[in-house]
Amino acid sequence: MITHPFTYRAPSTIEEAVAALGRSRDAKVIAGGHSLLPLMKLGLAQPDALVDLRRIASLRDIRAEADGTIVVGALATHRSIAEDRTIVSKLAALAEAAAAVGDPLVRARGTIGGSLAHADPAADEPAPVLAFDALIRAIGSKGKRDIRAGEYFKAAFETALAPDEIVAEIRFPAQTGRTGSAYVKFAHPASRFAVVGVAATVTLKGDGTVERAAIGVTGAADAPFRAAQAEKAITGTKGDAKAIAAAAAKAAEGITTLSDLVASSDYRRHLVTVYARRALERATQRAQG
């Protein structure tokens, strides 16, 4: 039951939605509603207006652009992302993260744009968004801008979005050469949120050495992050088991890991290294084809 009253509108363009956001003191955007409505029931969010994006059909699209960029509309559901052939073949870590969200019913309604705007520190999709170095395209009263994933996540439930900005799409740069990716997670047994989730992308040179790697970690800290030390350590190696283990051991370096009833800070730190290793192993195998 939701007790706090609000007005509701479902405009048919994103410009109208931005304008509607500006007209209320404490308006919220709603898409799948699977983060927002539970918060509203608890009284933790009490918006005076809801702006529903559901009539803006173009935000649902998943498409590849001419230069190979894969564009995922903010309203793409976890289910549609997990089942999309282009994403499964080109952005495996994203497909795996989307398939790992909640349960099938949650995945049928919940959206990637909603997940990124809500910015739960244990959400799955931020990890591949970071590892693919994606751009978050936001539209607000001052027009559109692209925010790099690395600059987007600020803290738990805090992003670089301005109050009148709406996530329109997530732009994944073309994956070139011999690139593989993977997402693996240690799920909370009841909620299925990530206690720790790690996405890795690995690109190999012709001789099989690691040209570049990117690792996005969710669930472990106040905000999802790139495991920069581990990325540096794996680059230039042969990507063999020993090199991967050595690099993964550095995945939590410089990070203050969360401590709660589910996992202590030390345990989470350990999980980050274990899951970074598994993600790197799988991504490297896939890059090797």
Partner: peptide, 15 residues
């Protein structure tokens, strides 16, 4: 056609 938790969708959203 999609199985949906009806406690997590507003009635107005089903217009």
């Amino acid at each position: 056609g999609r199985a949906t938790k009806s406690c997590t969708i507003l009635a107005v959203q089903t217009d």
